[in-house]
Simulated scan of single mutants.
Amino acid sequence: MEYRYLGHSGLKISVLSLGGWVNFGRVSPAFDNGINYFDTAEVYDGGKSEIDMGNAIKKLGWRRSDFVISTKIFWGGKGPNDRGLSRKHIIEGLNASLKRLELDYVDIVYAHRPDPDTPMAEIVRAFNFVINQGKAFYWGTSEWAAHQIVEAYGVANQLLLIPPLAEQTQYNMFHRERVEREYTSLFKEFKMGAAVWSPLAGGILTGKHNEKIAEDSRLALEDNAVMRRLRDGLLSEEGRIKIEKIKKLKAVTSAQLAIAWCIKQPNINTVITGASKPEQMEENIQAVKLACRLTPDVLKEIEDILNNKSSSQFNFRDC
């Protein structure tokens, strides 16, 4: 397994990581194959994800120094102070997460979304407070706009506090703009880390939906708004164009290729994958080996098929 430093820290994490709710059967083969980074959130399955992950870690009997774990704070419940990034919820939310995980600390705590109702100084101070208490080593952001991350860095520098270490964001062959264009200056100026999720675009890049939506898949869920949007998009004209691209890419299993492609992209530290059964985890792990075979010529062939590379920032001096 390949390991990379996360952002501007000395923390090393595996290029492939496991996220979401997990059980012993999925965590064990992941760890046995060198995966050391596991991600969850207080909102996943109403907190049960953290409980399951904690139980799996306890059953496996790992040394705490052998794995890296992160959780995310924003949606903690239905109470008036159970949501957002107030100092109150960041502190209480992380305490509740640690209790469910049965851990003394997490390695990284992420702000699951930006909170325009809470002053940035309060957010930065609160994350630094839990770090100073020893309940987290680093903090990061998830799905924040570049200007919000810059503001957080500015506040941290002004107050001599710890800035966010990494951004956890969506990234895949069909969702590229934010990582490849918006965050470019952040990678350069702040050495910000990137932990990316949804490398399979909600399952679309597996190829199993090429003919019709697989009935036993998450994409078929009617009560999930995210899956519903993805499904509607796949049934559109743009969706049909994507399916034709997927068919052209299918030299190996599409899932492995999609993950390997993410691993090979600049500035990506780890690719967070999910798995509903151990066999899927084993298949995802093979993507790391496949990534080694993606030469510049192969990547160019893939790029020619995708034809959606984000353009760089326009420089008026070149006019």
Rank of each mutant, 00 (worst) to 15 (best):
E151M: 03
F187K: 08
T169L: 13
T206F: 00
Q170H: 11
A166S: 11
A121T: 14
R113M: 04
I149F: 02
Q148A: 13
L205Y: 08
I108S: 05
W197Q: 04
F127D: 00
W197L: 02
Q148W: 13
E189G: 00
G207F: 05
L165Q: 08
I213N: 08
L186F: 02
E189P: 04
A136G: 07
H112N: 06
V179A: 11
R181P: 09
Y110H: 12
Y110L: 10
A194Q: 11
G207R: 07
I123K: 02
P164G: 08
N210I: 12
R113L: 05
R125L: 12
A152S: 11
K188Q: 12
K191R: 13
G140R: 02
A195D: 11
L165S: 01
F137S: 15
V124M: 07
G134A: 06
A214V: 07
G134M: 04
I213D: 09
L165D: 05
E151I: 03
A152M: 05
T206C: 00
K208Y: 11
K135C: 07
A195H: 11
E151R: 09
H112R: 05
R113T: 03
K208H: 13
R176Q: 05
L160T: 15
F187S: 07
G134N: 06
S185T: 12
T141K: 02
V155P: 06
V130P: 06
Q133H: 08
N157M: 12
A156K: 05
A201C: 12
E177G: 10
P199T: 09
G154D: 09
A201P: 06
K208S: 10
Q168E: 11
H112P: 02
E122S: 04
N157Y: 14
E167I: 12
V130T: 09
V150P: 07
E180C: 03
W139R: 04
D216Q: 10
Y153W: 08
V124E: 06
A136C: 03
L161K: 10
A121G: 12
P116Q: 09
Y110A: 06
T206L: 01
F137H: 15
K191C: 10
T184R: 15
L205N: 08
P199Y: 05
Y110V: 04
V150L: 12
E215D: 14
D216A: 10
H209K: 00
V124Y: 05
L160A: 15
V106R: 08
K188G: 01
Y171G: 02
A126W: 07
H175W: 15
A146V: 09
D115P: 02
E215S: 15
K212F: 08
S142G: 01
A152N: 08
F190W: 13
V124T: 03
E182Y: 10
F137D: 13
G140D: 00
A201R: 09
I213T: 12
I162S: 13
G134K: 05
I162T: 15
V130Q: 09
L186D: 00
N157R: 15
A121Q: 15
K191I: 04
A146W: 04
R176K: 04
N172P: 09
A195Y: 11
Y138L: 06
H147L: 15
K208T: 11
I204H: 07
F190E: 13
Q168M: 10
A126H: 07
M192N: 08
G203I: 02
Y110G: 05
V196E: 03
T169M: 12
L165P: 00
T206G: 01
A201Q: 11
A152F: 08
G193S: 02
H175M: 14
K208W: 11
I149S: 01
T184D: 13
G140N: 07
R178M: 12
Q133I: 08
